[in-house]
Amino acid sequence: MEYAAPPSSTYWLLYRDPLFSAATAQVISLLFGTTYVGVLYLSQRTRASSTPPNGGSVMGTRDDPKIIRARLVAVTLATLACCVGIFVLLFAHVGYDTDFLDTTLDATLLRLGLPLSFSPSFDSVRAHLVVPALFLGPLFASALSRELPLQRHWRWRPHVVDRFCSMQGVRNYALGPLTEELVFRACVLAVWHMAGIGRGAMISFAPLIFGLAHIHHGLETFRRYGRNAAAAKRAIFTVLFQLAYTTVFGQLASFLFMRTGSILPPVSAHIFCNIMGMPDPAWEVQRHPRYRVAIYAAYGLGIATFITTLWRWTATADSMYWPMFWADI
């Protein structure tokens, strides 16, 4: 246990009283989520086709490069609008009269977890390693398949250029995670925090907005696969799975954001999870039956490492969302 010297007392007193009610915070956060999803349907350019795919073509679907490009522009503008909304809320209630920050803009950046300064160190990097530790099992299986960077079956063009430099790559591994985390983590949690909502509720329930924001994928699935009973079943399964997965991930990302006071660890975790996909140990054991015990051991070690590092490696003495005078570092 190491003592972390407390910063200026004005840091902890900054906006210590709720600026508005919890109900108002929930309405605002729902408005943020609705704005982010709603812009995808305001224009014909951003709407995915309502007809089934023809011969496997992505034209007109959500994976059509033209639709992806239009949607990325739309959600980027929506994200900027939500961030400006945080600025407006702070300016309306506090203005420039603060002891700790010179301007409301600085206060907004602090609330959004955007770094006012950056000094590289292990303390600033270790929070980014927690989620990769959880994926030790899939990483070990990829190593067995010689698919990790610089291994035999890894190729620069298919594994890097084609995957990350396409429009789908920009959406899945860059602008998508960044804008979603800024809106559904930074903006939503900032509003809930301004209302004086407790940390437990913020971690447990705020991510539901992130989960609900993915329901529209079910509607697109229903339209894409023929608007019939089979399409409805597929859409319901898609919605339930994405609601569960995104809510659980949202809870983890909320924890990372609040513990570190930075939006960067949630963004890196989001990108890494998108790269790795859903772990499937049974399939990996089927591919490498000789290493069955080793694969399951790697999964267990990854889970154990994640549990033991989650609290310690995310400790940040100056997070306004999780203030600590004693940092267990």
Rank of each mutant, 00 (worst) to 15 (best):
F87G: 08
D318M: 09
D106T: 10
T51K: 13
G56K: 10
A230V: 14
G33S: 15
P281Y: 00
G300H: 05
R259H: 13
V267A: 03
L208V: 11
D280R: 03
L189Y: 05
L90H: 04
D64F: 14
A141C: 08
V27T: 13
T260Y: 07
V58G: 07
A195E: 09
S29W: 09
A229H: 10
G200D: 07
W322A: 11
V73F: 06
T79A: 10
T108C: 07
P281R: 01
A5L: 13
F205M: 08
W322M: 07
H153G: 12
S43G: 00
P52Y: 11
M278D: 04
E2L: 10
L139M: 15
R71M: 06
E220N: 14
R126N: 00
F255H: 10
P177V: 02
R163F: 09
Y321W: 14
V39F: 04
A231N: 06
Y36C: 00
A25W: 00
A5S: 08
G196M: 03
A107W: 05
D102N: 14
G300A: 15
P6E: 03
D280E: 08
L105G: 06
H217W: 07
A23L: 14
E147M: 06
H93V: 06
H217F: 13
G200S: 12
I275A: 08
S262E: 04
S29K: 02
Q26W: 13
F249P: 02
V161R: 11
T309R: 03
A298F: 14
V37L: 00
G226E: 10
L243G: 00
G113R: 00
R126E: 03
A174F: 15
A190R: 01
L42D: 01
P138K: 05
R290E: 10
D280A: 07
Q151M: 13
K66A: 13
D63I: 02
R234Q: 13
G95H: 10
A74Q: 05
V239M: 00
L136S: 09
I295C: 04
V160R: 04
D123A: 13
L243E: 06
K233D: 02
S8R: 14
V161S: 11
M1W: 09
Y15M: 11
Q44S: 14
F118T: 05
L30Q: 05
R234M: 05
R312P: 07
S43L: 11
A23V: 15
F257D: 03
P266N: 01
R155E: 11
W313K: 02
R155V: 01
L136P: 02
P281L: 05
R152T: 15
I197H: 03
I303S: 06
T260C: 03
S268L: 13
V191I: 14
K233C: 07
F325W: 10
P265E: 07
W326P: 06
I197V: 15
H270W: 00
Q251F: 00
R227K: 12
M167E: 12
N54G: 09
L101D: 08
W326E: 10
R199C: 03
L112K: 04
S49H: 09
C165K: 13
W283K: 13
L243H: 01
D106W: 15
L13K: 14
A327E: 08
H153T: 12
Y36H: 07
I68M: 08
M278H: 03
I215T: 09
G55K: 09
V285F: 02
N274V: 01
Y299A: 06
G85F: 12
I271W: 02
M278V: 15
F91P: 02
R290D: 11
S268H: 07
P279N: 03
Y41K: 04
A143S: 15
